[in-house]
Amino acid sequence: MSLEALFQKLYDSPLAAAIRENTSYFPWIESLHVLAITLVFGTICIVDLRLLGYRAHRRGARRLIVDLLPFTWAAFAVAIVTGALLFTSNAVAYAHNAQFQWKMIAILAAGLNMAVFHLTAYRRIGDWDDAHRPPLAARLSGAFSLLLWIAVIVFGRLIGFTLSVF
């Protein structure tokens, strides 16, 4: 089955029809999506700023990451589920929307950036845990992460202005 056919099948599903037809489903799911995104960005921002050298609520970077990562992951899971529901309701239109495509690419890039951080600088965190200025690799990860998540939020908001619902 081609991707195009898959998106059409999603659009034709009873779930998608229900979200389109009940006027309050979409805003409720969207509100939950926005809440999840603010939690993802809010918690990631604290860690990224620590990686850039701004102090958080504790000195050690590792403990800070351990404190906040469960919240980031839980909120990210909610964002994925609610985002998938919103996508399904108008799958073909979203799939063809350039801002939506850029948003997905930015999320993938942010994930990749995080994977690189965990495989490199985070492995040696014992060496720089308490350092006010983490090593360059960690600072770069923090900067990329901030920029990519800002891009995710901006592209996400732009979808609302550019999506052609037919």
Binding site: V34, T38, L39, G42, T43, C45, I46, H57, I153, R157
Partner: peptide, 26 residues
């Protein structure tokens, strides 16, 4: 202007939520 201002509004509410989450849970 409006999409940009809304994006900044959204990023700022995320900062409030992140700060409130950690402070309130503490």
């Amino acid at each position: 202007i409006i999409p940009s201002v809304q994006s900044v509004h959204l990023l700022s509410i995320a900062i409030v939520v992140g700060s409130a989450l950690v402070s309130d849970l503490r």
